[in-house]
């Protein structure tokens, strides 16, 4: 089964008189259970692509399928439901709701889904422990470091066992140790729960975990290699 299919995605932004290319004829097919890294210089279109995949932003042209659903055929409410039930997000910035504690932030998605309070509590407790935030459950985002906040966001993204996790620079604020722990967690979830990961990153340490590495530049895909290809090329 394929998790996501993108066909000829184009997206431009207008800024004053300037027209900026976000995506240019991007086509990718991502299989279920894949672990994909998107890399490329700043401004190459990684975030734009993730947003399009998550149905947050509509491309100017082209098509996206998640499972068997065409995103352009969904209304706002249905898109929201799909994000809620199928996708876990880690955003590049503004990840947490400032008035809620770490635990409440993690529970937010489950709460909107209508998961009972008891189950929410036990799951959020467990996942926060897994991301190494034991004992900080009741802190507000402002009382957490950038890295800790990032981990709360990761916990929220994976706590509901979505089919797909879209993560934008999940390790941006993490030290080497934490980021490798986080990646181990991702790999494990990918392995045991067959969750598909698409991670946008600059971080070479992250790319090492990828099964598939897609490089972007100026809104285009310039290379698309499996881990074996990378390894053989590196040799």
């Amino acid at each position: 089964m394929t998790a996501i299919v993108c066909k000829d995605l184009c997206k431009t932004f207008q800024q004053g008189d300037e027209i900026i290319t976000g995506l240019e004829n991007v086509s990718i097919t991502i299989e279920e259970g894949d672990f994909v890294c998107l890399s490329g210089p700043s401004g190459s279109g990684k975030t734009t692509l993730l947003n399009a995949m998550g149905g947050l932003d509509t491309p100017d042209s082209g098509q996206i399928l998640i499972g068997n659903t065409r995103l352009d055929q969904l209304g706002k409410g249905a898109l929201a439901d799909m994000r809620l039930n199928k996708i876990g997000f880690v955003f590049q910035s503004y990840n947490l709701i400032p008035v809620l504690t770490a635990r409440e932030n993690v529970e937010f998605v489950m709460q909107v889904r209508g998961v009972p309070a008891k189950e929410r509590a036990s799951r959020s407790f467990k996942i926060l422990k897994e991301v190494g935030l034991q004992g900080m459950e009741n802190r507000r985002p402002a009382q957490l470091s950038g890295g800790q906040q990032q981990r709360v966001a990761v916990a929220r993204a994976i706590v509901g066992h979505p089919a797909l996790v879209l993560a934008d620079e999940p390790t941006a604020n993490l030290d080497t140790l934490s980021s490798s722990q986080l990646m181990e967690l991702f790999v494990e979830l990918n392995h045991h729960h067959n969750i598909t990961f698409v991670i946008a990153t600059h971080d070479v340490r992250v790319m090492r975990y990828a099964k598939r590495l897609i490089k972007m530049q100026d809104g285009k895909i310039i290379s698309d290699d499996t881990q074996e290809q990378i390894n053989t090329r590196d040799k």
């Binding site: 998550g54 947050l56 706002k76 409410g77 929201a80 439901d81 799909m82 994000r83 809620l84 039930n85 996708i87 997000f89 955003f91 503004y94 990840n95 947490l96 709701i97 937010f108 998605v109 909107v112 929220r156």
Partner: peptide, 10 residues
């Protein structure tokens, strides 16, 4: 925006 992105309906 975040709440919407996470799947809260409008």
């Amino acid at each position: 925006g975040l709440m919407q992105a996470l799947g809260m309906r409008p």
